[in-house]
Each structure stands twice: as C-alpha cells, then as structure tokens.
C-alpha cells in the first residue's frame, strides 16, 4: 500500500512539476526525492518505481494534449524523426526519460543505504 501511495504521489508531483516549471528534466529531481523519502526495499525496485513514475506522467501529458490536438502535431513530428507513428514517438521519449528517472531514483536508494 505504501508503495502504491508513494508511486501515485510521485506521479502527481512529477505531473505538477512538469506542468508548472519550465525545466524539462525536472522529473529526475522528483524521482530522486520520492525515492529518498519512500525508502524502497531494493535498488531494483527503486529503479522500477522511478521508471514507472516518469513513463506514466510523460505518457499522460503527451496523450492528454495529443487527444485535444487530434494528433496533428505529433504525426508530423513522428514523420520528421522517422519514427513509425506518433505513439512510438511518445513511447520512445517516455522510456528514455523513464530510464533516467529510474537511475536517479536508484541513486537516492544507494545514498539511503548507509
């Protein structure tokens, strides 16, 4: 239960930070902080939860705006970057950022482990 709460809280903080701070990489700070205070059980889990937090928040930000825009922008960007479709573009970006968020989450776990 604690884990679910910390992940959900992480996602909400991540969404708000992305929405209101003009720093695209703010998610790494969020996953670091959440992991530092949540004290996950293993380093693997800390990575996974950080990863999930970022992927879910980035994907939802993408999809929310994209639906309102009927994919007009994202289809063109997918073509521009030679990616199969706009959803692949969202997926790739979210996963890459997820890995970065996972790593900082894990860094916090190692710091906690005295």
């Amino acid at each position: 239960m604690k884990i679910v709460i910390s992940i959900v809280a992480g996602i909400i903080i991540c969404l708000l930070a992305q929405l209101y701070l003009p720093i695209w990489w703010i998610f790494v700070a969020v996953t670091f902080a959440v992991s530092y205070f949540a004290h996950y059980k293993t380093s693997g889990k800390s990575f996974l939860y950080g990863f999930i937090t970022v992927v879910i928040s980035w994907l939802s930000l993408y999809l929310f705006k994209d639906t309102a825009n009927a994919s007009i922008m994202s289809d063109k960007m997918a073509t521009l970057f030679s990616v199969k479709s706009n959803y692949w573009l969202f997926g790739i970006a979210s996963v890459v950022m997820g890995v970065l968020g996972g790593l900082t989450s894990m860094a916090a776990w190692f710091i906690n482990k005295k």
Binding site: Q18, W24, L61, K65, D66, N69
Partner: peptide, 13 residues
C-alpha cells in the same frame, strides 16, 4: 520532447 513546453506546446487545441 518536453511534453509540456516542447513541440506539444505547439499542438493547438
């Protein structure tokens, strides 16, 4: 790629 201030900010709604 920033979903808020990057190209998605140009997605008109």
């Amino acid at each position: 790629m920033d979903p808020v201030n990057g190209f998605m900010a140009n997605a008109e709604t």
